[in-house]
Amino acid sequence: MKNKIILIVITIFLFTLNGCDSKELSNGSNDNSKIDVIVTFNPMRELAEYIGGDKVNIEVIVPDGVEAHDFELKAKDIMNISKADMFVYNGFNMEHWVDKLLETIDKDTVIVEASQGVDPIIVSEEEKDNHDNDHKHEGGYDPHTWLGLSTAIVQARNIKDALVKVDGNNKDYYEKNFNEFNKEVNELLNEYKTKFELLENKSFVTGHEAFSYFCRDFGLEQSSVEGVFAEGEPTPKKMKELVDYCKKNGVKAIFVEENISTKVSETLAKEVGASVEVIHTLESRGEKNYIDAMRENLEKVYDNLK
């Protein structure tokens, strides 16, 4: 009788255990075979997905359509980051709330400042002052590092190194993915460096001054309707300067990022006889991955400058 009772208890225990396992797997949130990575916004997801592949679960904090530098953390975000294996943010004050966050999260979480090691582009004092007044934090560097191909490689390497630190057993897998990314991006970089070098027109006009690292890679000169931190519509003086610049340099297209108002850019384009062309910033998830989106950007910019 005693042995029978023991057998019943063991059976119930095993049944309960199996039930719990099935529930966890069906939810997909407790797959212990994958690394839990939380990233701040979509460009970091693009890079982490490329390097991490099927070895990572990725969660994005900032919703599509919300600016990372305007976002405010919620308590649940802090809790989720604390439980993650790895947390990736862009840096250069793209996410002004990160410094306070890092004081609160679990020390076991591997922290990745993706822009670490990037040669930063310093914003003008006027831009910095405007940004400080609006956001009450310093903004000395242009944070749009992922839009430069050479700087995106640095970011991808930082993410790869962190994944190796967290999951050394899959080091070869992460190294292979990074090497493929590095090869593809460098091929794209070198191809278009040669193309842009042969062009006389290097004048690249955008709705938002987010492409300084992109321009540095290819020797282009950027002029923009809005500044680095997109602080609203330009003054009449700035608008006149842009009109004069476009006419003087024969600008054929004003490039605007997806999912934002193009009203001012359309006004400028109409004034100078240019078209308005959409260009990817990857701040919202689209159908194209990082490399395909950047290839399309390059093709579009080149075609409108040649």
Rank of each mutant, 00 (worst) to 15 (best):
W97R: 03
Y213F: 09
V112D: 00
G117V: 09
V56C: 05
L268N: 04
G286N: 05
E191R: 06
A162T: 14
S212W: 02
E113W: 06
I8H: 00
G286K: 07
K183F: 09
A162H: 10
Y290W: 11
T104M: 12
K176L: 13
I5C: 02
I38M: 13
G232Y: 07
L189T: 03
V228E: 02
N289A: 03
D244G: 08
K136H: 15
T40H: 04
E127R: 00
I260F: 12
Y245G: 08
G52P: 09
N133M: 12
Q155H: 11
A210N: 01
I291P: 06
P236V: 08
K238I: 10
I291N: 08
I6Y: 06
K83S: 13
A230T: 15
L268I: 04
K248G: 12
L149V: 06
E46R: 00
N90M: 09
K237G: 11
F13Y: 10
L102M: 11
K136G: 10
P63A: 10
K2R: 13
V272D: 06
E258W: 02
I58N: 04
N93Y: 10
M79K: 14
L149Q: 10
G28L: 06
I105N: 00
N169K: 15
D106N: 15
L298I: 08
S212K: 09
E24M: 14
E46N: 14
M239D: 07
A269T: 02
D303V: 06
V9I: 15
F87N: 05
D303R: 11
I121T: 03
N80G: 08
L298C: 08
M1C: 03
F15G: 09
D119A: 11
N130Q: 14
C215R: 06
Y245R: 12
K2C: 07
V228L: 01
G65P: 00
F218P: 05
R295Q: 11
D85Q: 06
K237I: 09
E283P: 02
D85T: 01
G117K: 07
E175Q: 14
T151A: 08
H131A: 15
E126M: 03
I121D: 05
G28Y: 06
E258K: 13
